[in-house]
Amino acid sequence: MIVQGLIMSSTDITSKTNRDTMVQTGSINLLVTEPTQVVQVSVSQDLVASGALNDLKGLVGKQTNFTLEFRNSSWGDDSGKHRQYSGFSLVSVPVVK
């Protein structure tokens, strides 16, 4: 889905590295309209590796159309623990002209 949103501050863009797999992912706090709310959006390891977090910092303070996907999944990891994810993921970095 495409939503109109705004990243208010560069501190709303974060990254983290999984200590076990050394995979780096990110997230953004996105202020969306219709209805107005702040949504946490995950950024995949592929987008992070391609420099998406730096590109997103260039969008701070600019109202932009973001393409998001809602994901809801659960699985068992290698150690037998139940894992679950439910939330929005960034599909691609918006291009602003």
Rank of each mutant, 00 (worst) to 15 (best):
V39Y: 01
D55E: 08
G58L: 10
Q4T: 08
R83F: 00
L53T: 05
S74I: 00
T17G: 07
G80P: 00
V41W: 01
T36S: 09
M22W: 10
G26E: 04
L90S: 12
I28F: 10
K81S: 15
V23R: 14
G76T: 13
Q4C: 08
R71P: 00
K62P: 02
V3T: 07
R19P: 10
G61N: 03
S89Y: 06
K62Q: 14
S79Y: 14
D20P: 02
D12S: 09
V91M: 06
F66N: 10
G51E: 06
G80K: 00
L59N: 13
V93N: 03
L59Y: 09
R71W: 00
M8Y: 08
D46F: 13
K97C: 02
N29E: 10
D77K: 03
I28T: 06
H82S: 13
E69L: 10
V48H: 07
V3R: 09
L6Y: 03
N72V: 01
M8K: 13
D46V: 15
D55R: 11
S92Y: 12
L68R: 04
A52F: 06
S89C: 06
K57L: 14
I7H: 05
V91I: 11
S86Y: 00
L53N: 04
M8P: 07
T21N: 03
D78M: 04
S42T: 00
K57S: 14
T11S: 13
T21K: 09
D20Y: 15
Q45N: 11
T36I: 07
V48F: 06
V3P: 01
N54S: 11
S73T: 00
S9T: 08
Q40G: 12
V48Y: 05
L68A: 04
G87Q: 02
V43D: 07
Q24L: 14
